[in-house]
């Protein structure tokens, strides 16, 4: 099992599994090429690199992290037109009235969908929003994404 950290990404081939832990308002994007059995995962924290002060880590942002992941998957033998996406996270864990980042989960989600649309990658499963955390596991053998939560059980996509 390859663990993808916060603001991190990885690519794996059959029969390896990829996981990212404890997604709250962050989003875990898993891409899969079912012909070549190659999977990729990125754990983004913010919608865009544009206004960020520290831009070094491209995996932190939806608009750089997702295209970079596609590139490295293609480099490792995936075909871009075979890629499909399954996404999870984007929850709203807390709402502080004084907080300007209220809807960071929603903003991350909107940006993720926009980037995937631009790349012409179809989102075939979406377990997002609500108010609880998620851990995801992608099985590169089958492309199945397992979404685990602390109190809402486990789902498979």
């Amino acid at each position: 099992m390859i663990i993808v950290g916060m603001a991190d990404s990885a690519v794996a081939k059959k029969p390896e599994k990829l996981t990212t832990l404890g997604l709250g308002s962050c989003i875990g994007i898993s891409l899969y090429d079912n012909r070549n059995c190659i999977g990729g995962m990125v754990h983004i924290m913010l919608p865009s690199v544009e206004n960020a002060r520290a831009k070094d880590n491209r995996a932190k942002f939806a608009d750089t992290g997702i295209p970079d992941l596609v590139d490295s998957m293609v480099k490792q033998g995936a075909a871009k037109h075979h890629l499909t996406a399954k996404i999870a996270g984007g929850a709203r864990m807390f709402s502080f009235s004084s907080n300007s980042n209220l809807n960071i989960g929603e903003r991350n989600l909107a940006a993720t969908k926009e980037v995937l649309d631009k790349l012409r990658i179809k989102t075939i499963a979406d377990d997002t929003g609500d108010t609880y955390g998620r851990t995801i596991i992608l099985d590169t053998e089958t492309g199945q994404l397992t979404v685990k939560s602390a109190q809402k059980g486990e789902k498979r996509y």
């Binding site: 916060m6 807390f94 998620r134």
Partner: peptide, 27 residues
């Protein structure tokens, strides 16, 4: 300090919103 908010969940999920906010200003 503000009133408290309590939840049971995965540690990463509980704190990522705050880490996101912090990460916009500090490394």
């Amino acid at each position: 300090i503000s009133p408290p908010m309590q939840t049971f969940d995965m540690l990463g999920a509980i704190m990522d919103q705050i880490l996101i906010e912090m990460s916009q200003n500090v490394e």
